[in-house]
């Protein structure tokens, strides 16, 4: 499986670390609602098909990317940079 890092270009999945489901939001740092935290840490949908997920390019630039991946075919249809920086247009 190849993930196109916005900074480094297409790289094998082994250069990345799977971070988790990107369709869920981490509660605010000061939120103490245990239900919300429980949902965030433990509850996941397990879709057959399109799945939005975070990966970190740990062997490369260490950026985080949001990846839209099909859990059946492994086809990756979208990769976007996450975080406060914008990816530079490399063309």
């Amino acid at each position: 499986m190849i993930i196109k890092c916005p900074h480094c270009g297409p790289r094998e999945a082994s250069e990345y670390t799977y971070i988790g489901d990107a369709s869920i939001q981490r509660p605010d740092h000061n939120d103490t609602d245990m239900e919300k935290w429980s949902d965030y840490v433990f509850m996941r949908e397990n879709p057959r098909g399109a799945h939005m997920e975070h990966w970190q390019h740990t062997s490369g630039c260490r950026s985080f990317v949001k990846v839209l991946r099909d859990t059946v075919t492994h086809e990756i249809s979208d990769v976007t940079l996450e975080g406060p920086w914008q990816a530079e247009d490399k063309s």
Binding site: G9, E15, S59, G60, C61
Partner: peptide, 11 residues
């Protein structure tokens, strides 16, 4: 694919 004066990180 990788012109001269390029930097890359990998393993």
């Amino acid at each position: 694919d990788l012109p001269g004066m390029s930097v890359l990180q990998s393993s």
